[in-house]
Design a protein around this nucleic acid. Structure first.
Lengths: 285, 285
DNA sequence: CGGCCAGTTGATTATTCTCAACGCGCGTGG
DNA sequence: CCACGCGCGTTGAGAATAATCAACTGGCCG
């Protein structure tokens, strides 16, 4: 394997159990990962650790959904295969990320989960999630937040996909990765991307050559240094400038009154602690 | 308003309460909407109906998150505004859709929700969702499914955004809208899109002229008829052909062993039936 | 009427993809 | 050992695609 020595080096850098070194659940909720919070709430239930080596499948598209997987150490990617044969890398996952949230509704995984590096996952039986939730409301709330976070992250990525040209997407990708690495205690400036140009391009809707050219140009501009899959961020503002350069030519937004439904409801119908048992109240127009 | 007469016509076509005519919760889970199932589980809690007219804000980016909104009748869109000023239409929502799922984690709405047409929403206090979940496991399961569905839908859209050229995206958009309309009892072939070319383009990462040209070309090919914002699908296979034309030139997928982590776990640790939540329904494979 | 907005269409430009060549590291097998 | 293949990455030239700029239509409304 071309990256075997690289991955060995990385694995040595991981703590044995990432969650052991993360802050406790009650502290600084935003600073830790959804995965760690949920795992800490289900420690007594059947959780399996599994060490995996690069290239291993964590799950496969079409597999029956039984487990939420929390990435405990290492890195993984998800590859989506649509029914008409298109395939692409859809996500890159860091320790603390939860995989499989998209599989709950369908009852089957919709994409392949593949270890990029040696990695270790905690497989939480969905049955246990359900069972624990009945006695532990905090877990349910955490799950809601984890789902919600995932949706928000996807939206943010889509926003970049839709509104930015190639170089802007690459710049946004680098800054995003920097944030995600930093949030997990990795370096925010020396990014071990671990993904091929092809995989990065697939995530961004670009061809591998376009990704390579963007990296080369950023390096020429002094914004980054490129050493194969390690990218060193030198000038964050410069990268932000790349993004800003392509934005701003959008239309001005339609002006509108400053009211909103929820604001109105809050004013007009303050929430009463008592549950009103009645038919749904229909406001006449 | 350019579409006021159109919207009046549409409003007349809505049943007074869409959920009243939808199948009951237990039947045909896939055929009904997440919103209807959840609403039917919280009928006794403070739910507010509000009629809205076109252009009204249902919620605004930055508003404190208090309510999940179930669109009961009419159509709405969500507009995302990123911190650096980019703005775009991110979603188009039909009766039965749930809005605000992405706001749970942040505690605030991240995008504007805007009525496209006269529409009516059920605002479900998140407090009530939490409270009811503690006594009603079925509701929690439904919520999980709703979240999960949303993630899956976003993924599917992103797949199209990343892998398809302009015409492919438009074709995929039309077929997707057809499915969504059909699932809610609207015509699957005569689509009242209700969105401007600009809004459609924004969702697909295209400029309005590109959308217009795609429509024109599809019409010239006899695949659709275009009457402003009403699109009549004439040849679904033809539209699929447009999509297929651009796919298939992807790389062959990396070959890999047929094992996966979850399959392995399944073999080693069979799930005990006692853990199974009776509410949970997994689609057979 | 005249302005405005949504939509269509054409001409031109810019961006990105495609195709191709090449370098490099690393394994494999002669 | 070294040649070779192969995967990954870079770079260039040309082709294809989509964006941009611009003109024009039609409906609506003040």
């Amino acid at each position: 394997m071309a990256n075997s020595c690289l991955s060995m080096h990385q694995v040595d850098a991981y703590p044995d159990n990432l969650f052991a070194v993360l802050p406790p659940v009650t502290a600084c909720m935003d600073a830790t990962t959804p995965g760690s919070r949920i795992v800490s709430l289900i420690t007594d239930s059947p959780i399996r650790h599994r060490s995996r080596k690069p290239g291993d499948y964590l799950f496969r598209a079409g597999d029956e959904f039984r487990f939420l997987l929390v990435l405990n150490a290492g890195f993984a990617k998800t590859c989506y295969v649509s029914e008409d044969g298109r395939e692409q890398t859809t996500g890159f996952h860091l320790p603390g990320d939860i995989l499989g949230l998209d599989a709950v509704a369908a009852g089957a995984y919709g994409c392949d989960g593949i270890a990029v590096d040696a990695c270790e996952v905690l497989a939480i039986p969905y049955d246990a999630v359900i069972a624990h939730g009945q006695s532990n409301p905090a877990l349910v709330g955490e799950l809601y937040r984890a789902f919600s976070s995932e949706i928000r992250n996807e939206r943010d990525l889509m926003l970049s996909l839709r509104s930015l040209p190639a170089e802007g997407r690459v710049a946004a990708f680098l800054l995003e990765m920097s944030l995600r690495f930093a949030a997990r205690g990795f370096s925010a400036t020396e990014l071990q991307l671990r993904l091929t140009r092809q995989e990065i391009g697939s995530m961004l809707g670009l061809k591998l050559e376009t990704v390579s050219r963007a990296f080369s140009r950023f390096a020429k501009l002094g914004l980054i240094n490129v050493y194969l899959r390690e990218i060193v961020l030198l000038d964050r503002d410069g990268l932000l400038g790349i993004i800003a350069k392509s934005t701003g030519r959008d239309r001005v937004r339609r002006k509108a009154p400053v009211t909103s439904l929820t604001a109105g409801i809050h004013d007009v119908f303050p929430i009463s602690p008592a549950m009103r048992n009645s038919d749904r109240h229909i406001a006449s127009q």
